[in-house]
């Protein structure tokens, strides 16, 4: 037991010293790298052209409001897709988990589904469903590219999400299932109250990665018409003959995704701390 008024323990003093040393090292190396970038890059012969093309402040100012507005569409598509993806992904995962031989066709369907939708590029699914299904003769509003584009995203991402859920379910030891069944609980209650809560918690980090990928793939909906941020940036690029609008779009994306990832990490760390 160390007295608080006796000052730091030997170990605390040692750790403090180490920490100070590593902070100094980090500060020095970071400033060297940053200085090299800031000083050396502008000295290159092509810098003026590159700056004009990618970092043109006038174009930033001109394009920012419309790009931000277009970004709201990305956010909306993302927001309504996520719950659908989660629900379908979970359903597929559960279909793949049924043990009863009577339901073998359901299981087979689950396997086929995940294999197909994970094997095909998202762009193709977006085109095929976004143009193909409405092309069969659906009338407005049922041929909307928003509707079918969302369907394409949901179908594709549900396949990935289902696989992750399934790996989570399989990672829960059989003894947990047995313990619940031995109490007389039904298989569905066992899944709902015992297996899934543990499985879902376990796969949160993997699912977060999927969501970040989805964020970016939302832009693929622009291929079938909707003018979201990257499409709007493309229009500006074409009209202004500059890549700066893409840089602005990327910056807007990062402003949202970086805090979101940090928050997710933080929540996860907190959850882990709380449990131990």
């Amino acid at each position: 037991m160390s007295d608080s008024n006796k000052g730091p323990t030997r170990r605390q003093a040692h750790e403090r010293k180490l920490k100070r040393r590593s902070m100094i090292l980090a500060a020095i190396s970071t400033s060297v790298v940053v200085a090299a970038l800031v000083i050396l890059i502008p000295l290159t012969p092509g810098w003026e052209r590159v700056k004009q093309s990618f970092f043109n402040w006038d174009i930033v100012v001109r394009t920012f409001p419309k790009l931000l507005n277009a970004f709201l569409l990305d956010v909306a598509i993302f927001a309504w897709s996520v719950p659908l993806i989660a629900a379908l992904g979970l359903a597929i995962a559960l279909a793949r988990d049924v043990r009863d031989p009577v339901f073998y066709p359901l299981r087979l369907f689950g396997i086929l589904y995940t294999d197909i939708f994970r094997g095909v590029p998202v762009v193709l699914v977006v085109y095929l469903i976004g143009f193909g299904i409405p092309g069969l003769g659906l009338q407005r509003p049922f041929n909307s590219p928003y509707l079918w584009g969302t369907v394409a995203l949901v179908l594709t991402y549900a396949a990935y999400v289902a696989e992750i859920f399934r790996s989570g379910i399989e990672s829960i030891h059989a003894s947990q299932r047995n313990a619940a069944l031995s109490l007389g609980m039904s298989p569905s209650d066992t899944m709902r109250f015992v297996i899934l809560p543990q499985a879902i918690r376990r796969v949160v980090p993997a699912q977060m990665n999927i969501l970040i990928a989805l964020q970016k793939d939302v832009a693929l909906l622009s291929f079938i018409g909707p003018v979201e941020i990257f499409r709007q940036a493309g229009v500006f690029k074409s009209l202004l003959a500059s890549f700066t609008p893409y840089v602005v779009a990327a910056a807007i994306f990062l402003v949202v995704t970086i805090p979101a990832t940090r928050l997710a990490d933080h929540m996860l760390a907190k959850q882990n701390r709380a449990r131990s």
Binding site: F131, P134, Q139, F223, I224
Partner: peptide, 16 residues
């Protein structure tokens, strides 16, 4: 808005 003429045509054909 679309990537190319082919996609504009497809959207026209799909009634979108």
């Amino acid at each position: 808005l679309y990537n190319d003429n082919a996609d504009v045509s497809a959207a026209l054909q799909a009634g979108q």
